[in-house]
Simulated assay, not measured.
Amino acid sequence: MKRNTSAAKAIVCTVVLWTIPLLLAAQRSVPKLEDLPRRAIDTLDTDDSNIKIVIFTNNTWCYYYPDLNERMDREVYREHWVNDRVFAYTDIQLKELPPVIDLQLIDRYGDFHAPAIGKVFSKYGTRGRRRHQGVDIPLSVGEPIYAAFNGKVRYARYNTGGYGNLVIIRHENGLETWYAHLTRCNVAQDDYVTAGTVIGFCGNTGRSRGAHLHFEMRYCDQAFDPEHLIDFSTGDLRYQTFALDRSFFSIYSRASETLEEEDDYDESLLAVHSPDGELTSEDILENIESTTQAAIKQEQAKTDPLYHTIRRGDYLGKIARQYGTTVKRLCQLNNISEDAIIREGRKLRVR
């Protein structure tokens, strides 16, 4: 009896050992839905007549742009278009750029996607003796990095200059966005991408001390603080259109200096109520008179010369914003050019 039991167990074990490989092979032979033949079966419209959605038989889909060839052949993607080096505008100097560049950033919702969301731990500006021409956002290795706007990939490769795996996208308004230290690039040069496309994954390649995204914004190779346009803590775009002042290309031009400015409201111009809470006709007349006199004195003060003593870190654009004027007006008042070097301690007439 014991001999029959042992024989039965041996048979069961043998069957199991032969069955498991067969089951695994059968499981491997069942194709995933995504691996089935991919044939287009339907096209759906979107709110944008130039963007459609194609549905495929294997339960996948993609965007389709009927005007894609026209988009990719625009002049902005032909002039100064190079794939083998990071700087494409070596023949254009800063002084040749207009004083203000009007940038149309988006036309509709969906034209922007934050490249990453997080606290900026290293801001645009000087870092010791080096120039830090972008912002650093700490992330985990492998986190997806997104294209900020629609555009065409100009550069996507490993950069030996310190950026590591680097993707550069040029956008239709001429702006370029740089995404550095990626663990790998997810796009190739000359690809057309839309806002929100995963163009790579966070890494620690190149000259980097930890996993993070180094993100830059440039116009004609000139870098400016990306925080002028993006709130990285929320992932929001600050403007639909943006006036890019040439002074912003200075390494000392920090967005925080502009964004932290607040409007001051003169509450004394509000109506004055009598002690019992009722507003009499005499109160109204007195308030009108005092308000008028205050306005006259204010206008007279505007005509008096006003001077600003230059401090370290000052530049024409910053001073102009501080006093509500323009760089052009400052140059006229002081008989200087927009490229003039202003030295610490000098008095500059601002009104």
Rank of each mutant, 00 (worst) to 15 (best):
F112Y: 09
G164V: 11
V12P: 03
S290N: 15
G235E: 03
T14M: 09
D245F: 08
A340G: 00
N50A: 13
R131G: 12
E299V: 15
S6K: 11
Y77C: 11
S256W: 13
R246S: 05
H171P: 07
Y315A: 10
Y239H: 15
D231V: 01
V167L: 03
Q27N: 12
L105S: 06
S250N: 08
T183V: 14
N59A: 01
Q104L: 08
D84W: 03
N186I: 06
D48Q: 05
A116V: 13
R71L: 07
P305L: 10
Y265D: 09
V82W: 00
G174A: 14
C202A: 04
I51E: 13
P99M: 06
G162V: 07
D73A: 10
R321V: 00
Y65L: 02
D304W: 05
L182M: 11
D314P: 07
I117W: 06
N334P: 04
N50Y: 13
S337E: 10
V141S: 08
D42C: 00
L213A: 07
V135E: 01
D73G: 15
K32W: 11
Y158L: 00
L94K: 11
Q222W: 13
D264M: 07
S247F: 05
L333S: 01
D73I: 15
E260A: 05
D67R: 10
P144W: 04
K52G: 12
N165W: 11
H113S: 00
L139Q: 11
P37K: 00
G235I: 05
E282Y: 15
I106E: 06
E278H: 15
R129H: 03
T160M: 14
G164T: 10
L97A: 09
R254T: 07
Q240K: 08
G162A: 07
T5C: 14
D339H: 03
M72P: 06
K302E: 12
C202R: 02
F242A: 06
Q322L: 13
K328T: 08
C185R: 06
A147F: 05
F121S: 14
A211Q: 10
